[in-house]
Amino acid sequence: MLAALAAVPVLIALAVRLSSRDPGPGQGPPFLDRVSQNGLFIALTGMVVSIPLFLPLTVSVAAGDTIAGEAGHGTLRYLLAAPAGRVRLLAVKYAAAVVFCLAAALSVATAGVLIGSALFDVGPITLLSGDTISVGESLLRLFLVACYVGLSLLGLAAIGLFISTLTEVPVGAMAATAVLAVVSQILDNLPQLEWLHPWLFSHHWLGFADLLRQPISWDSFAANGLLQGGYIVVFCGLAYSRFATKDVLS
């Protein structure tokens, strides 16, 4: 799955490299017009393109598979027969999902930087504010962006963990989680539901742009952290309650 994610920036880079015409300013996904001048922007374009669907999809697969996957293989009861305890199993499973979220975001960024520096020139990067920063600092900012995106997905991973405890069919849990991610983004775009927007877990997903301003605006990082923390606590609590009371038959 990480390889599939890494393919996103690679595909974009190849498409830009092979096309004869440069995209004009403001055309296509954000940052695409800068790519031919500076390869580092591939990582950002890749991130913008993956956030709405590819990243939530892979995270849904990883998180939906946690408990339901073991149940589906019939291995869950053997895991619980070992003196490990249900809480510990749940914690380990969620920790694995968290690691996957961060790895997924980092793999998009890393693949973008690698393919960008292989196919295009790499130079000082222009921030949204119009200021220019050195390559070293650009890489640091990209790392922060990847951390932000990874953090943004933790709430979704917690939801996936909860749904995974509800069923023994892993595909059902994965699909339900992915659908929720899409529904949340659709709701976030309806102006009639404005009161709901700050509570949606996808609300700050594109807020990583605040890390590309000069000076960095940490507001959305903090707001996002708080929101994702809330989702983690609520859904891990639900997952614990459900899993601790569940009759494990498979």
């Binding site: 809330g230 606590v233 609520v234 609590g237 639900l238 614990y240 309650s241 459900r242 601790a244 009371t245």
Partner: peptide, 13 residues
């Protein structure tokens, strides 16, 4: 009792 966290946490938030 095992459902307590699921109820208490949203209430606290």
């Amino acid at each position: 009792k095992r459902w307590l966290p699921a109820a208490v946490v949203p209430a606290v938030i």
